[in-house]
Computed example of a mutant assay.
Amino acid sequence: MGNTVFASQLMNYLAIVTFATALYSASAAADSFRCQNDLVYLGDSKAAVLQKCGEPLVKDAFCETRPAQTTSTTQGSTVVNVATCENVDEWTYNPGSGKFMTTLRFESGKLANIKLGDRAK
Rank of each mutant, 00 (worst) to 15 (best):
G76D: 04
L10A: 07
A28S: 06
E90T: 08
G98T: 01
V49H: 03
F33S: 11
S108M: 06
T21H: 11
C35G: 12
S25K: 11
S45P: 00
K121C: 02
Y13C: 10
R105C: 09
V5L: 06
V82A: 09
G96L: 02
A83H: 15
Q69E: 14
N113P: 00
D118V: 06
N94I: 02
A30P: 03
A47R: 02
V49D: 02
M11L: 13
V17G: 08
G54C: 04
C35E: 02
T18A: 15
V82T: 15
V40L: 04
N113R: 10
W91F: 02
S97E: 10
Q51K: 09
L116P: 08
K115Q: 11
N94C: 04
L104Q: 00
A47E: 02
K52Y: 01
D31A: 04
A15K: 08
N113M: 07
A15I: 09
A20T: 07
A83M: 14
T73A: 15
A28W: 07
T74K: 11
S97M: 08
E64I: 10
D31F: 01
L104M: 00
A48R: 05
T21I: 10
N87C: 10
C85T: 06
N113E: 03
L57G: 01
L14R: 13
A112P: 02
G96Y: 02
F19L: 07
E64G: 12
T71F: 14
K52N: 05
L10D: 05
D38Q: 12
G109S: 13
G109R: 01
L116Q: 10
K99V: 05
N94W: 02
G76M: 01
R105K: 10
D60W: 03
E86A: 09
A47D: 01
S108W: 05
E90L: 07
A83K: 15
F100H: 07
A28D: 07
N37F: 14
V49R: 02
P56G: 07
F106P: 07
R34T: 11
C35T: 09
L50M: 02
